[in-house]
Design a binder for these strands. Structure first.
Length: 810
RNA sequence: GCCGCUGUGGUGGAAUCGGCAGACACAAGGGACUUAAAAUCCCUCGCUGGCAACAGCGUAACGGUUCAAGUCCGUUCAGCGGCACCA
């Protein structure tokens, strides 16, 4: 059999597409638009790895199909090029990060083009390009001007290895997400973005978009909304101590209180505390620990009782002790809790250890019907079913009623109020590194405040420096560059100093989908016209690892921009899907150190881009993790060779032949539907099955081949384009997507399973759509059936049209 | 610990609403072609027994619902991902 010259064909068509700008999109109001987006890559020195082609090919298939369905498709690509690896590589090899980025981008571009993805290269963007980061800076200033970017002294996560501040989201098990280096706590002044202001909107918006449940859950969990109340407890030190609780109904059961070791009252009360030294020592110990260590040793509760200050439970008027303990966090709620050991497992453990009273105030049973027993463990409600006891005026009420009544009582007595809390923290937005967008603000001593760099002076260029090594003091490399730092105040003209921190890598990727709509605009970050036509993104596919952070951050920016009328939709992405990771052949995550990485470009050189594209889609369920197997590509290559060789059995014909029409219509239906559901693997299987059928038939006509090539073209565009042209059908990307007739998808004859008592006895072939009586009669006429039921009593007869007959006998 | 997901041949994986388990591939075995090999084409391919027709078993384990369960329900086990003292 003739094999096709994939090398020549692929180069030919890539050149054609590039020269003709085939996939370049312009606003065209006569056509419906479709904006397909993939996560733009970080151009690392290693080039593309086996994981990249999976999502890109998937969206390419969808984009190509949409074009054939008459949509004006925007399918852009760019580079998320700021970031630590480039900077570290630059330091190690003494090459400027700009040069490193340029080299890497060149390599990535070339590799992307060799896969034949139908990106609009006219819209390529690069987050490190001043023409791009000008607008990232401009966007930061919009936050700043509205008080949503602010500077704050805070304990931050400091990576000892990278010498950089990390967002909470970037700390994994107490180590740096990127380098696995140790992370410690350090107090620094940091730029923050007020994402918390949008917490509720970020939850509500999820109802208007089409995201898979697992992504919705992860967003909601990350935001972590809870409702409850804040309650004031009087203390004998004078101050009232305010706590946050989700269970105000259990107030009668609160037998002690706990404040975080960092709580400001510790020092406020210092003179009244007889054991202040012991408390300070405990607090110092807690502060030294990273969050990770703190939770590591937290299996055993620890704490110190305040000797000299106590509180009064407002419901029982009983005096209760106050403790410091690191199981109470300073950053959540008020940094103080009322402990209800009967109904909170952490409080219960603490009470056991310090021998504190445990009072039962709710009785009920758990989801399995086991009655509550607070001598064994705290009774925490997993349903709303519980009855109040030992709770004065709440006795006998159900929990929801008790919550309402106590809230009212607290309000009437001015002891507290309802309160909603979120786990979400504001976003730490500064990094003490070189390779990022400079934050465009200056500190003016005479104004005594941070002043925005005027928008007319943007971009604030990242200066060329000799040495971009991070400093051990935790200051940015820019901090040593006098010519950069020293400036004048835009407000008053007095000498002022520039901010030397840069933005995190998330900044550029938080709005890139907007820039793609209008990438060369030097007046605005995006024009209204482009926004109105292209936005929102219709379908955004990316990795599961970006479904909390990147997705949340970019939704936050978008909601902010919507609020100030800079974008026209409340959500940026209508539909989001996530692909599974590709593991190495050993079933482990691909990594250089394991030596199990796969270079897709070598495979492209060996078997052609179309084969690799096909294999990446055939490997398994797109949304699940898949294990790489280089052997598997062979099957896909073989299939394409078989398609190529169909020319040897080609016959004339303008209409589908009787022999193949049915299965071709079914294949059209299956491939079309499967693409929409991301079931690329079964779509390919369907095309393989059709080709196998053609081989059995020994012939295919021109009309049939043409349709097959249309179906195959999004998957293997080079081969399909070449054959399409060779047989005089024209340009496949200008073809309309194939239609099917639902009536022709059905079979004339179907095989019916004959069962007795659910056991298969025989199979018969009957006309499709035969009615139940006919089927039953045919079944009873069957020898195997009549033999099995003779002399027995028929209890039940089940007939499923086109499927089976089951006769139940006794 | 909590939340989410997954468990099917030697392997990757298929299987709308519960209705023939194993589509489509890889690997393996056999045959044709060839001086030979590769490639290609054709056949076999869940397990057990049988020359065979065929019979029995089989979707992590156990139990349940049903005429019928990979699919629904319960319990358990294993693996993966996320969160992890959030009051």
């Amino acid at each position: 059999m003739d094999k096709y010259d994939f090398n020549g064909i692929e180069k030919k068509w890539q050149k054609y597409w590039e020269e003709n700008k085939t996939f370049h999109a312009e606003i065209d109001k006569s056509k419906p638009k479709f904006y397909a987006l993939v996560e733009f890559p970080y151009p690392s020195g290693q080039g593309l790895h086996a994981g990249h082609p999976r999502p890109y090919t998937a969206m390419d298939i969808i984009a190509r199909k949409r074009r054939m369905q008459g949509y004006n498709v925007l399918f852009p690509m760019g580079w998320d090029a700021f970031g630590l690896p480039t900077e570290n590589f630059a330091i190690k090899n003494k090459i400027h990060p700009k040069k490193v980025t340029e080299d890497n981008v060149r390599k990535f571009t070339e590799q992307c083009k060799s896969f034949g993805w139908s990106f609009d290269w006219e819209r390529e963007i690069d987050t490190t390009d001043p023409n791009y980061y000008k607008w990232t800076q401009w966007l930061f200033l919009q936050f700043f001007k509205r008080g949503l970017a602010y500077k704050k002294e805070m304990a931050v996560n400091w990576c000892m290895e990278c010498k950089v501040v990390l967002a909470n989201e970037e700390v994994v098990n107490g180590t740096c997400e990127r380098c696995n280096g140790e992370v410690v706590r350090k107090v620094k002044s940091q730029w923050m973005l007020k994402i918390t202001e949008f917490a509720q909107e970020l939850i509500d918006g999820l109802e208007d978009v089409d995201y898979p449940d697992r992504i919705v859950y992860s967003q909601i969990n990350w935001i972590g909304k809870s409702t409850g109340a804040e309650v004031d407890f009087k203390t004998n030190a004078g101050e009232t101590l305010r706590v946050y609780t989700t269970r105000p109904d259990t107030l009668f059961g609160s037998t002690y209180m706990v404040i975080a070791p960092e709580h400001s009252y510790v020092e406020k009360w210092a003179s009244q505390l007889k054991n202040i030294d012991e408390i300070r020592e405990y607090a110092a110990k807690a502060a030294r620990k990273s969050d990770f260590e703190r939770s590591e040793i937290a299996k055993e509760k620890s704490g110190v009782k305040l000797d000299g200050v106590s509180a009064i439970n407002p419901t029982t008027s009983k005096e209760i002790p106050i403790f410091v303990s690191d199981y109470v966090l300073t950053g959540y709620g008020t940094g103080a809790i009322m402990a209800v050991p009967g109904h909170d497992q952490r409080d219960w453990e603490f009470a056991k250890k310090f021998d504190l009273p445990i009072i039962e105030v709710v009785v009920g049973h758990d989801a399995h019907g086991v009655p509550s027993d607070i001598t064994k463990e705290a009774f925490v409600l997993d349903t709303d079913e519980g009855t109040m006891v030992n709770s004065g005026f709440l006795d006998g009420l159900g929990v929801p009623e008790a919550k309402a009544k106590i809230s009212q009582w607290l309000a009437e007595n001015k002891l507290g109020e309802k309160k909603t809390n979120y786990k979400l923290r504001d976003w730490v937005f500064s990094r003490q590194r070189y390779w990022g967008e400079p934050i465009p603000v200056v500190w003016c001593d005479s104004c005594n405040k941070w002043v925005a760099v005027p928008e007319s002076e943007l971009p604030l260029m990242l200066p060329e420096v000799e040495n971009y090594m991070p400093t051990d003091t935790g200051e940015s490399p820019l901090s040593t560059l006098e010519s950069f730092i020293n400036t004048t105040c835009p407000d008053c003209g007095a000498p002022a100093k520039r901010e030397t921190d840069t933005m995190p890598q998330w900044a550029g990727s938080s709005w890139y989908y907007l820039r793609y709509a209008d990438p060369h605009n030097d007046k605005e970050f995006v024009s209204n016209e482009a926004l109105e036509y292209w936005l929102p993104v219709d379908w955004y596919n990316g990795g599961m690892e970006h479904t909390t952070l990147h997705l949340l951050y970019s939704r936050f920016w978008h909601k902010f921009l919507f609020g100030i009328d800079k974008v026209n939709t409340p959500e940026p992405y209508l539909k989001r899907t996530a692909h599974g990771m590709i593991l190495g052949e050993d079933g482990e995550k691909m990594s250089k150190s394991r030596g199990n990485t796969v270079d897709p470009n070598i495979l492209v050189a060996d078997t052609g881009a179309d084969s690799v594209r096909l294999y990446e889609m055939f490997i398994g369920d797109f949304e699940k993790t898949a294990t790489w197997n280089t052997q598997g590509i062979k099957g896909c290559k073989r299939f394409l060779d078989r398609v190529w060789a169909l020319s040897e059995m080609l016959k004339d014909g303008d209409e589908y032949s009787e022999k193949l029409a049915g299965s071709l219509h079914r294949t059209i239906k299956k491939v079309g539907e499967d693409i929409e559901e991301l079931k690329f693997n079964t779509a390919i299987a369907a095309m393989m099955a059709f080709v196998n059928e053609v081989y059995s038939a020994g012939e295919i006509n021109r009309a049939e081949l043409k349709t097959l090539l249309v179906l195959l073209s999004p998957f293997a565009p080079h081969l399909a384009s070449e054959m399409f042209e060779a047989f005089g059908f024209g340009l496949v990307h200008e073809q309309e997507w194939a239609d099917f007739d639902p009536e022709l998808c059905t079979f004339d004859e179907v095989e019916i399973v004959l069962q007795v008592n659910g056991k298969i006895k025989d199979r018969i072939t009957v006309e499709s759509g035969a009615d139940k009586n006919t089927l039953l009669a045919a079944a009873k006429a069957n020898e195997a059936i009549s033999g099995a039921i003779s002399g027995k009593e028929i209890v039940k007869e089940i007939v499923v049209t086109d499927k089976l007959v089951n006769i139940v006998v006794k």
